[in-house]
Design a protein around this nucleic acid. Structure first.
Lengths: 389, 389
DNA sequence: GTTACGCGAGCACTCAGGATT
DNA sequence: AAATCCTGAGTGCTCGCGTAA
């Protein structure tokens, strides 16, 4: 392997000069620059970034860990994350948790071994709050709460659920079926859902999966309006075949359903099944896709849907990731040798945010203490298409 | 940062002993092992992999570069690739080429700077054959020809095209519309399509995009059978909205169409459009999705489709990638200092393959010379569903 | 010969500080 | 004082070789 030394020797300069030429920095005369360049070309020299990484303690790589990349929503999200990382001169190391056992811990390990500069976590973690708290390296969560010190970017599912409920009420729906994930995860917290922009709390216990809040709020509102709601669970959201079965079940089990709210793929399945059964949409049955991706546009009938702003979400995730990287870098520098690194990082946390950024953070009262858990909410948008009236 | 030396000091041993404990290798007494472990725990030591990478010249990371990860086909492929890499203790660095300008070269660069151990290329490269030839590091191509020294894994599109044609002929189709990518890429080679398992050549010039062969062969066969064929191009396969428009165009421009062959998303769009227009499927119009992913199952009517074995494709891509990594590692070792590294790598190429593996390689005569260009063909399967009769 | 451990030269690059003009 | 270049001490881990029981 031809190294920087070989180039230096051939060009008759020191290795540091070659380094300066490579990085195009510092004081190097044009003459030298040319001579070094010539030597590099002649020897077919290519710098080895591994040495650079070692010295700098960085790899410019962030781990992106999601449940399934197969699902169009996550595929789009990952694609946009990768894009924004690229803009920052960073790269994405991909991990879909679905088929991997201890994938999360494995990636956290890479983070701590400095193979990764940061972690963007969108998977459903089994790891405890304390575990995440103890990591002390750059982590950003997507649509889920990990611990107070880790910022979250997610959709404003509370108002999302309310919007859907209102649309259904306005359309005169009487019997709504809701298709979603395992019900067990719905109420794993002991406090009620904090309703954004108000001091109210929903009467039902909150979930640690922010997404679920749309279901909680929606059911709440529908109930209040005197509309019947049924729930059809899909055990494994990464298994596509299950969506088709859920669709059948929804139509089989409840004869007088007149509206179905479901994840996009399930919604597409519902449309398919309804068409096959000769059910008229939207006259006899309305369908709304929650988290509608492009798939809901390709269904038998274009499906009305509540869509997340994937691009904006990705952008913010990357912004936060970069901020966290910077934060911890600062902390490490200032705490040189001291074990106060952690404390310093905490300090920097609040300082880093501009006041305008600060306002955007909607503290969902996840934590009773004064610690400012940062939840960055992205707006959802309701797209009216052919399956609602 | 607490390093291996700190641990060694605290445990009263040498750094090499600590290293042995970390890697669980070599001769270390249980007593020492315990003492070292204790010290590691006490100091909260976590090994820094960057140093290891530097020494070993490896990162256990392979770059996976695809056109769009948004498209369900590539999403699935990437997911499976990542899975099989994981099995090998490797990780996937993701890159979708779509929005990135010089993405390919950038990743090749990372490969040469040893940030990547190998590259799996599924994007549509603008780079010349000579460029790829000159890289001299582990690269595997998906469904496209890069150069003789780079192995390719791809579907057997020739028989795929033939199967579709025969199905259409048997069903009595008279006027077929074919939706696909830009026509300009269809005949960028000067020789005919080599038909697998025979010495025949198609009368039409070949394409450097193996996928296109299904279109060439299909059109050929249909033409021979006296069936009219039209072509509706989609300019950008990464833009979903264009599929919908292509579907409209196919039905607008050709009134008496009775069969449409299209990429899965376009096929779904065709079904949607047909349903909206009251066209009966499959009685008045048959639809076949080529490269049918799960989306074709979620369309308004489940679409008959020609599907690739994504899992097997991914598996083989990874197998080849690992083989290439090993090959080049051997070459580098044996050619210590000699510039015969390249030659050695070439040598190893043929030796690495077992005879049974060898048989699977279908040399598509891409190259007239004796160099064994390796093309590993994966079978396609025809799935009959509701849109054909 | 086998088991157990330490020494120290790498690995390829970066960068602060010194020397020179 | 400013521009230019070099010296050499890191960066943290690996592994061949040496020693010793």
């Amino acid at each position: 392997m031809v190294g920087i030394r070989d180039v230096a020797k051939k060009a008759g300069v020191s290795t540091s000069t070659v380094s300066l030429v490579i990085n195009n920095s510092g004081y190097v005369s044009q003459k030298m620059r040319d001579r070094v360049s010539a030597a590099m070309a002649e020897l077919n020299y290519i710098p080895n970034d591994l040495a650079k990484n070692l010295y700098k303690g960085r790899t410019d790589t962030v781990g992106v860990i999601m449940p399934t990349i197969q699902h169009p929503f996550f595929a789009s999200l990952v694609a946009r994350i990768q894009h924004y990382l690229d803009v920052q001169g960073m790269r994405a190391l991909l991990c879909s948790t679905a088929d991997q056992h201890a994938a999360e811990m494995q990636y956290v390990d890479m983070l701590q071994r400095h193979t990764l500069d940061a972690l963007i976590v969108g998977s459903h973690s089994q790891l405890s709050q304390e575990y995440w708290e103890g990591i002390n390296r750059p982590v950003v969560a997507f649509d889920r709460y990990l611990c107070d010190s880790i910022p979250t970017v997610g959709a404003d599912h509370v108002s999302g659920g309310r919007t859907v409920a209102q649309a259904l009420i306005a359309s005169g729906a009487q019997h709504v079926v809701n298709i979603g994930g395992p019900r067990s995860r719905f109420h794993d917290r002991d406090r009620g859902v904090a309703l954004l922009n108000s001091r109210e709390m929903s009467s039902r216990p909150d979930s640690s999966f922010p997404t679920v809040r749309y279901q909680l709020v929606m059911e709440d509102e529908l109930l209040t309006a005197g509309i019947e709601t049924e729930y059809v669970p899909v055990e494994d959201l990464s298994d596509m075949a299950l969506f088709l079965r859920a669709a059948e079940r929804a139509l089989d089990d409840f004869e007088d359903v007149d509206a179905i709210v479901a994840p996009d793929l399930a919604a597409a399945a519902v449309v398919q099944e309804a068409l096959a059964r000769g059910i008229r949409i939207p006259d006899d049955l309305q369908v709304i896709a929650y988290d509608g991706t492009y798939v809901s546009a390709f269904a038998g009938i274009p499906v009305t849907s509540m869509t997340q702003d994937v691009d904006e979400t990705a952008r913010r995730l990357v912004v936060h990731a970069m901020q966290e990287i910077e934060r911890y870098a600062q902390a490490e520098k200032s705490a040189e040798g001291t074990s106060a690194a952690l404390a310093a990082a905490r300090e920097a946390a609040s300082g880093e945010m501009t006041s305008s950024e600060h306002k955007r953070y909607v503290s969902v009262q996840e934590n009773a203490q004064g610690v400012p858990y940062r939840f960055d909410a992205v707006k959802l948008s309701y797209v009216q298409r052919g399956t609602t009236r």
